[in-house]
Amino acid sequence: MSEAVTALKNARYDAGIATISEIGPLGMITIRGDLEAAFLRKVINKTVGLERPESGMCNSDGTSAVAWMSPDELLLICPHAQVAEVLSRLLAAFEDTHTLAVDVSGARAAFRIEGTHAREVLAKLAPVDLAPAKFTPGMFRRTRVGQVPAAFWLLEDGAFQVVCFRSVAQYMFDQLKVAAQPGSAVGHFSAP
């Protein structure tokens, strides 16, 4: 198999008020089906050892993650080297139920925003209330970032992970850099 390369070769920016880094390659699998079905919870748990997330949440153990994308869609993240195996185990377990799983690793890019001003950098670009009391660790949100669709969750205070389409990876990196440029702290969530 050919060597997996991320869109921006893991570009990194740490000259600003938060560190922006492209991460990956990550294994990403989209699952669509009846999220209320008991068998789906069981399959997720057996495959990656995580609970199916509640709406608006992402369950993660540092290696793998399962995020709630919509009432009938989950995003499963795993190490890139394991994606083929995880996918085949999912498909085998879904059998003839009306449930779909597809490897979307090659269609996505992922970024981290880290630092005390991480909330502020993302809040400049997304129409989401990111106040510390409103957006807490583990919360996941699918929305837009600037002009492109994206999803993000708060890993822990001061660290977001952002997922977007690979085709807009450069745009995402560039706008995150602008939002994090030196001297741009607004002090909305904390003193600048």
């Binding site: 608006g56 919509s70 009432p71 129409p127 989401v128 929305t143 837009r144």
Partner: peptide, 12 residues
């Protein structure tokens, strides 16, 4: 009404 997210109109 599907995902219960409240957001401003640019997300819609």
């Amino acid at each position: 009404p599907c995902c219960h997210v409240t957001a401003e109109e640019t997300e819609f």
